[in-house]
Simulated scan of single mutants.
Amino acid sequence: MKQVNKFYKDPKWMAKRIRILKRDEYRCKECLRYGRSVAAATVHHVIPLDQRPDLKFNSDNLISLCNKCHDKMHDRTNNKLTKLGEQWIRRMKAEK
């Protein structure tokens, strides 16, 4: 867990995070699916960093989310993806 926390303080990640938020116009991609325009503050790894560290800077694996939607992607009790988080993986793979 320490390694992950260190990653999010890395200047390279911080710059990438800003690029993704700009790409997504600072709007939550999940909320946009339902026609809602909600400000995004978080950049989410669709395939989690601990599962695929090689995708940590891959733009195709990153989406902007509001905090509420980001919390819906993870079960915070066991740090696993929720069904919604798994749906995003399937959606991402289907787009390729």
Rank of each mutant, 00 (worst) to 15 (best):
D10M: 10
P11I: 07
P11S: 14
K12C: 04
W13G: 05
M14W: 07
A15W: 04
K16P: 07
R17A: 08
R17Q: 06
R17S: 03
R17V: 01
R17F: 08
I18E: 15
I20N: 01
I20M: 04
I20E: 02
L21K: 02
L21T: 02
D24K: 05
D24H: 10
E25M: 10
Y26I: 01
R27A: 11
R27D: 04
E30W: 06
E30S: 12
C31K: 01
C31N: 06
C31V: 10
L32K: 14
L32V: 01
R33M: 13
R33E: 13
G35Q: 11
G35M: 06
R36T: 10
R36P: 06
S37D: 14
V38H: 07
V38K: 09
A39Y: 14
A39C: 11
A40H: 05
A40G: 08
A41D: 15
V43G: 00
V43C: 03
V43D: 02
V43R: 01
H44E: 08
H45M: 03
H45V: 02
H45E: 01
H45N: 01
V46D: 00
V46M: 00
V46S: 00
I47W: 06
P48V: 03
P48H: 04
P48F: 09
P48A: 06
L49E: 08
L49D: 03
L49Q: 02
L49C: 01
L49R: 08
D50K: 15
D50Q: 14
Q51W: 14
R52L: 05
P53Q: 12
P53D: 10
P53I: 09
P53A: 11
D54V: 10
L55W: 09
L55D: 05
L55A: 03
K56A: 14
K56E: 08
K56N: 11
F57S: 05
F57R: 06
F57P: 09
N58A: 09
S59Y: 12
S59P: 08
S59E: 15
S59D: 15
N61V: 03
L62W: 02
I63R: 07
K68H: 14
K68D: 15
C69L: 04
C69I: 02
H70Q: 04
H70W: 08
H70F: 09
D71Y: 11
D71K: 14
K72D: 13
K72A: 10
M73G: 04
H74M: 14
D75A: 01
R76P: 05
R76F: 14
R76W: 11
N78L: 07
N78D: 12
N78A: 04
N79I: 11
K80G: 05
L81N: 09
T82Q: 04
T82M: 03
G85K: 07
G85C: 06
E86L: 12
Q87W: 08
W88E: 11
W88Y: 15
